[in-house]
């Protein structure tokens, strides 16, 4: 691989990694506040992809515009799952919580299978294969747009977390739920809101990846794993860590595939994940508690 090819590979890795970061931030946020690892995270993302796909097929709605529909739908779906399924067992043993999210994931992915069939689908927009050249490096337009939208969404999330009452309540609950409750924070509401926001991030990431990916009902499982990798690389519960973790995963995958091992693309991140657990379980970038 020559230098230009390398820069090219890293650049497209960064663009994909940005979207991975968004998936990871949702998982990390949920874990930070609720201490629940959402094993259905990628499956929610697949639901987002299919909503955008269905809107595109039926109404020719541009996938990026369908975010307007997907985001509120995601919040409602997440809040519903939290209230009805997770809240009643929030004091149960950890494995019960994991099993519950595994069950939710199975229900989501297999409902998609029943509705849309196992056949991989893709959408074709006018810009699907368009590229722009920056010097000798060419970048795919859909990935660039996705990356830009990711930056906007993440920046918006930071504003919400640092500048609003809800954001302060979320951060307080993440630091110490009991203390937050004693200060008058409605932690019950905060948890529902956080799960909703996390699901919105995941489903939005699905929409952003739709123009660049094939979508099939079990695509979520792969992304659940990717989200785990991102958050473990960055440190569980750390949002800034998830951003770096996402970018790193994107670059590692892209460079690994560029070196010729396309079939092993998904394995690189998983091996990195196991190595990080071995040598630096608090994450490469964060300092979360283990």
């Amino acid at each position: 691989m020559d230098l230009i090819g390398f820069v090219q590979t890293v650049a497209s890795g960064v663009l994909t990694g940005g979207v991975y970061a968004m998936v990871g931030i949702g998982l990390s946020l949920i874990f930070g506040v609720m201490r629940i690892v959402n094993f259905a995270h990628g499956e929610f993302m697949a639901v987002g992809m299919y909503i955008a796909f269905a809107l595109f097929r039926s109404f020719h709605l541009d996938p990026y515009l369908s975010l307007v529909v997907v985001a509120p739908a995601g919040f409602l779906l997440g809040a519903f799952v939290e209230r009805v399924l997770l809240a009643p067992i929030q004091n149960a043993a950890e494995h019960s919580l994991i099993l519950m999210t595994v069950g939710v994931g199975l229900i989501l992915s297999n409902s998609l299978l029943l509705i849309f069939g196992a056949h991989p689908e893709t959408i074709y927009t006018s810009y699907s294969t368009r590229t722009v050249a920056i010097g000798p490096v060419t970048l795919s337009v859909p990935l660039l747009v996705s990356f830009a939208l990711t930056v906007i969404v993440v920046a918006g999330l930071f504003l919400v977390l640092t500048r609003t009452d809800l954001g302060r309540a979320i951060r307080a609950a993440a630091q110490n739920r009991d203390a937050a409750e004693l200060q008058g924070v409605d932690t019950r509401f905060v948890q529902t809101a956080v799960f909703g926001i996390g699901i919105v991030l995941s489903m939005a990431a699905g929409v952003l990846l739709l123009p660049a990916l094939y979508v099939f009902p079990t695509v979520g499982g792969i992304f659940t794993l990717k989200a785990f990798v991102v958050t473990v690389l960055g440190g569980m519960g750390s949002i800034v860590g998830a951003i770096w973790g996402g970018l790193l995963l994107g670059i590692v995958e892209s460079v690994g595939a560029g070196l010729g091992a396309t079939g092993y693309r998904d394995a690189f991140g998983l091996i990195a994940f196991l190595l990080v657990l071995l040598v630096r379980p608090q994450g490469l970038f964060g300092s979360s508690h283990v």
């Binding site: 950890e94 994991i98 785990f228 998904d266 394995a267 998983l270 091996i271 196991l274």
Partner: peptide
């Protein structure tokens, strides 16, 4: 050895990853 030293869901997280790596290989 890698995962039991850690608290929390790491064992469950790693379990999916191990099976998946073996499948890919």
């Amino acid at each position: 050895f890698i995962t039991f030293r850690l608290r929390g869901a790491y064992f469950a997280l790693a379990s999916i990853a191990v099976a998946e790596v073996l499948r890919i290989v």
